[in-house]
Simulated assay, not measured.
Amino acid sequence: MSNRTTGAARRHTAEIAEEQRWMSVVFLQGEEADIVLDVIDKSGPDAAIQHLSLWDYGQETRDAALVNGYVYDQIPQSPTDRVIRDEAAGYALTYNIHFGYVSLLRQFAPLVEDARESVEPPARFGFDRQRTVRRTDGLRL
């Protein structure tokens, strides 16, 4: 393998590792958000992140976010939002006391996670279940 190929492979690997996206784990508003906002006020944002992380079901949460379009290049936020990042856990908490909502997002690398999965290709047109059938002469009257 030449150095040129090796260098290109390293750059490609670095690009994949750098591509990070944010997916929505949970978004609460109204009375549900008020409970979490109280947790933030009394125990701090880290306690709220820990509480909201209970809504993260791993792969199931990721798949739901991808299907429903809740995946973002950057943390979605308005100018009046507070954003707290937990780098170690890969979470971001956004909240707004004035508008009464709380959101927890999780960071992920879509290409790296997809490459780790071993997914069988879907069966096309049922060919995997195809069996030979005894042929008949057709209709008889």
Rank of each mutant, 00 (worst) to 15 (best):
M1F: 13
M1G: 15
S2A: 12
S2N: 14
T5N: 11
G7L: 15
A8I: 13
R10C: 07
H12R: 15
T13H: 10
A14C: 04
E18D: 12
R21D: 02
S24F: 00
V25S: 02
V26Q: 01
L28C: 08
E32F: 07
I35L: 12
V36G: 03
L37P: 03
I40T: 10
I40A: 06
K42P: 00
K42H: 10
P45A: 15
P45W: 00
I49M: 05
L54G: 11
W55L: 08
Y57T: 11
Q59T: 12
T61M: 05
R62L: 14
Y70Q: 14
Y72T: 02
Q77D: 09
Q77M: 14
Q77N: 11
S78E: 14
P79M: 09
V83H: 02
I84G: 01
I84H: 10
E87P: 04
G90Q: 04
L93H: 05
T94E: 00
T94K: 00
T94Q: 02
N96D: 13
G100M: 07
S103N: 13
R106N: 10
E113R: 04
E113S: 06
R116P: 03
V119N: 09
P122Q: 11
R124M: 12
R124H: 13
F125H: 13
G126P: 04
D128R: 03
R129G: 10
R131P: 00
R131N: 01
V133C: 04
R135Q: 11
G138L: 08
G138T: 11
G138W: 12
